[in-house]
């Protein structure tokens, strides 16, 4: 018996999809920005080379890089409320997990970009009489940011995909919306195919743009 495709059903949930897509994009942008802020701050602090400062940051970075994001989200949702003795809404728990995850990678990207700058640049800037702030702002960061952008964009693309894990704590993102539509229509084939297509439609142009930019930085 041949399967009869019926995508018409999918479109009747347009409002639903729009909301799911909006939540996926909002979480992506929000957690990427949050992660960026964490990355800049922690990455900068790592440059100070004070053990009491760098040790906890390294601990944070490795903790989040070396545990699965799914475990982190579940932990934040179920375990953190017990630790803090406060009720944590799903959207916040999941957002916190995603942000800290992005932050750990951003920290490494930021630090890596800074320390990749040749030591001759630092000594030339210092020899001219620049303070650390002047050197960072005018000499090191302009060069380092160029190198940070491609890995950061790549990590952001991964982050957008990772937001689909919101599904497990019932935050109604694109993926969770799909599961609801399936339970309504009993049409998993059309629904999940559409979900995949929507992720692809957002991510493919982004990856193209990222690789174009990477080529430009390499020049």
């Amino acid at each position: 018996m041949a399967y009869k495709w019926d995508f018409g059903l999918i479109f009747s949930y347009a409002n639903f999809w729009a909301k799911g897509l909006g939540i996926t994009l909002a979480y992506s942008v929000g957690t990427v920005l949050g992660g960026l802020i964490i990355g800049v701050i922690c990455g900068m602090l790592l440059l100070y080379k004070r053990k009491w400062l760098t040790l906890p940051i390294h601990f944070y970075v490795e903790l989040f890089r070396c545990t699965p994001l799914l475990v982190q989200i579940v932990w934040f949702y179920y375990a953190l409320p017990i630790v803090l003795a406060v009720e944590l809404p799903a959207w916040l728990a999941a957002g916190l997990g995603l942000t800290l995850y992005m932050g750990s990678f951003s920290t490494e990207i930021f630090r890596g970009g800074i320390i990749s700058i040749d030591k001759g640049q630092w000594q030339a800037a210092r020899a001219l009489g620049m303070t650390n702030g002047e050197m960072m702002r005018h000499i090191i960061l302009p060069q380092a940011i160029k190198r940070m952008v491609p890995p950061f964009v790549n990590q952001s693309i991964i982050q957008l995909k990772n937001t689909s894990l919101l599904y497990v704590v019932a935050v109604p993102d694109l993926m969770y919306t799909g599961s609801i539509v399936v339970s309504d229509t009993f049409r998993p084939l059309e629904v999940y195919t559409s979900v995949a297509a929507m992720y692809f439609a957002i991510l493919y142009p982004l990856t193209l743009w990222a690789s174009r930019m990477e080529a430009k930085v390499d020049q």
């Binding site: 001759g120 020899a127 002047e134």
Partner: peptide, 23 residues
């Protein structure tokens, strides 16, 4: 800090590898 920077500002230095700012 700033005191050190001011001290260095009075002394010019040229290096083996030039170390010009590429940007």
């Amino acid at each position: 800090g700033r005191d050190l920077a001011r001290f260095r500002a009075r002394i010019g230095m040229v290096f083996q590898q030039f170390d010009l700012f590429p940007h």
